[in-house]
Design a protein around this nucleic acid. Structure first.
Length: 560
RNA sequence: GCAGGCGUAGUGUAGUCUGGCAGCACAAGGGCCUUCCAAGCCCUUAGCCCGGGUUCAAAUCCCGGCGCCUGCACCA
């Protein structure tokens, strides 16, 4: 008996859902093609994701480049955290991670340059742990794919789509008319040069993500009414398992409001796409497991044949990203928070006298004046000002200190970020496993995919390939296609075989043209899940099929 | 990267030890038959991971490479 994973992979390849890329050259691990069925599956799934997470909450969708300059990933912290230093033994060839080797000798191994590391290895006479051989030079290993931009500029392929959103925060904030919360979504591919990716489509070097960055004011109270009150299966970092309602999890402080909100929404979404909710849980990351940017992360895990698989992550990234991009770019990444009441504030400030500073310092005068304005006012005497590394003594008569009362209507702050991040390929795989079904009486394979996500909505079959049934069936396919429904025609093999072929790729409805069709212009519609058939007039066929797909019309409400 | 295992039509396999015409099943395509769930019959397409060596002869033996699987390490 083949295991489930083998069965899914078999169907995936045979029927064109996905397969390993570059097969004619032996394949490359970590890369997958989506075939004709898989591409549509992914597209339909993403459409539903957009409806559920983007349109429904009024978020904005953007689409930013895959390649980014080095500075972006220096600022984001990925360059440092995603680079490992390796060292290879000269005699046995084993490779080791440097930080593990030198950690007994150095306090902060991560902070060292390759040259420093080699020095540490020499000075402490560190040998190969396996064979005691001499270690070679330190090599860099980037988990990020690197590339060139133009002739000599270092670039990287994004390891997550998020940075494309963060770097655009100022313009997006303006487009959103400077209001928070603001949610930005992005769907796209991300790249990680995994050393040894296996487990097929579940761990790829190039993979599809759908991410949301929700920018919020950390001082704003969360409106608990928004949290749908449905049960959540939680597993906290202390190993406590609980089934608790989303509202209660928030009220008890187990998760913050945004987490609770998204957890509930994710449960709804997963249910819609056919995931078995009894095989879903949210697992909180341990401290040491947290990504460098995250303060708190909960993974939505789905139980599949390989065990619990992380499919969606919700990370509380705090101000980390905007703060770092602000530091590296010098661009103000802050939002404005209006006070409920304007505040009267008394303050002192330094007012430079330009008519004195100007003649004294010529072109430097403006810079000096600016620096002075930013200083804490100290009463009287000569003022020491540093500009571009030079120190200036400003005489007492070149400035004055004024005390004033101003009306502050608000203040600037760095928004916090809540990030639900969906691994689309894993979601698709989990969906395939959970919707996979074998008919007990025959063992035939069925994908019970939600009709809205199903890549192909209808198959049109003539009962016999004669007496004009085939011609009529082709006409009916035309009607289906003209109505914008993705359908296909199949006359090969027996009728049962055609149903079975359709079941395997989750075609929800099959239309069969029989002899009665020629008399009264009706066809049978066969429901994939119940295998029942109902008769429908060709005149209303397209309408009925659309309603069936969208779930507006239950199959059982159709007349015999 | 390391260790072990493996690599034969689209898929699953037999053949490899002991060198001698590459076989089977399913799938796919065509046809016959067939009035609703992979029926049957006929036909067809299609394969030894790549390179080198040994040999009269290599899927089989040897060497090298590549790939996959499992474990180790790695995994926001």
């Amino acid at each position: 008996m083949k295991d489930l994973r083998a069965k899914i992979n078999d169907i995936a390849k045979r029927r064109g859902i996905f397969w390993n890329s570059y097969e004619i050259y032996g394949g490359v691990a970590g890369f997958y093609d989506y075939g004709p069925i898989g591409s549509l599956l992914k597209k339909n799934l993403l459409d539903m994701w957009l409806e559920d997470f983007v349109y429904r909450d009024g978020l904005h969708l953007i689409d930013s480049p895959v390649i980014g300059p080095e500075v972006v990933y220096r600022a984001s912290g990925h360059l440092e955290k995603f680079t490992d230093y390796m060292v290879r033994c000269k005699s046995c060839g084993h490779a080791f991670r440097v930080d593990e080797l030198i950690s007994p000798y150095v306090e902060v191994p991560d902070a060292l340059s390759p040259e420093d590391i080699e020095k540490v290895i020499r000075e402490n006479n560190i040998r190969c742990p396996d064979c005691n051989g001499v270690l070679g030079n330190v090599e860099e290993f980037h988990l990020m794919f690197s590339t060139r931009i133009g002739l000599d500029k270092q670039g990287f392929l994004r390891p997550e789509t998020a940075q494309g959103i963060f770097v655009n925060f100022p313009i997006l904030y303006r487009i959103n008319r400077e209001k928070l919360p603001m949610g930005i979504a992005q769907i796209g591919r991300a790249y990680r040069n995994e050393i040894s990716p296996r487990q097929g489509i579940l761990r790829q070097r190039e993979f599809n993500m759908a991410e949301i960055e929700l920018f919020v004011d950390p001082q704003e109270d969360f409106n608990a009414d928004l949290i749908e009150d449905i049960p959540l299966p939680l597993l906290t970092m202390d190993g406590v398992e609980m089934k608790i309602s989303a509202r209660e999890a928030y009220e008890k402080g187990i998760v913050n409001g945004y987490m609770a909100y998204y957890m509930a929404r994710i449960m709804r979404f997963l249910e819609k796409i056919g995931i078995d909710l009894s095989r879903v849980r949210f697992r909180q990351h341990h401290r040491e497991e947290l990504a460098h940017y995250s303060q708190d992360t909960w993974d939505c895990e789905i139980l599949i044949s390989l065990g619990w698989m992380e499919v969606i992550g919700i990370a509380y990234r705090g101000a980390y990203d905007l703060e770092h991009h602000m530091g590296h770019s010098g661009v103000d990444m802050r939002a404005f928070r209006k006070f409920k009441e304007p505040r009267r504030v008394r303050r002192k400030r330094i007012v430079p006298h330009m008519e004195i500073l100007g003649p004294m310092y010529k072109v430097q005068a403006m810079k000096i004046a600016k620096a002075m304005e930013e200083m804490e006012p100290v009463e009287g005497g000569t003022l020491k000002v540093e500009v571009d590394g030079k120190s200036y003594d400003i005489p007492e008569d070149a400035y004055e200190i004024v005390e004033e009362e101003i009306l502050l209507s608000g203040e600037r702050f760095i928004p916090h970020v809540v990030e639900p991040s969906f691994g689309i390929d894993r979601l698709i795989y989990a969906m395939l496993e959970h919707t996979y079904y074998e008919r007990p009486e025959s063992g035939y394979k069925v994908m019970r995919i939600n009709p809205r996500i199903a890549p192909i909505k209808v198959g049109v079959f003539p009962l016999m390939v004669k007496d004009g049934l085939d011609i009529r069936a082709r006409e009916i396919l035309r009607i289906i296609r003209d109505a914008g429904i993705n359908g296909y025609y199949d006359e090969s093999g027996s009728i049962g075989r055609r149903y079975a072929r359709a079941d395997e790729i989750g075609v929800p409805f099959c239309i069969t043209v029989d002899y009665q069709t020629l008399q009264d212009n009706t066809v049978t519609i066969r429901d994939r899940d119940s295998m029942e058939q109902r008769r429908v007039s060709v005149d209303s066929l397209a309408e009925v099929v659309k309603d069936l797909i969208d779930g507006r019309l239950p199959f059982t409400s159709l007349g015999k």
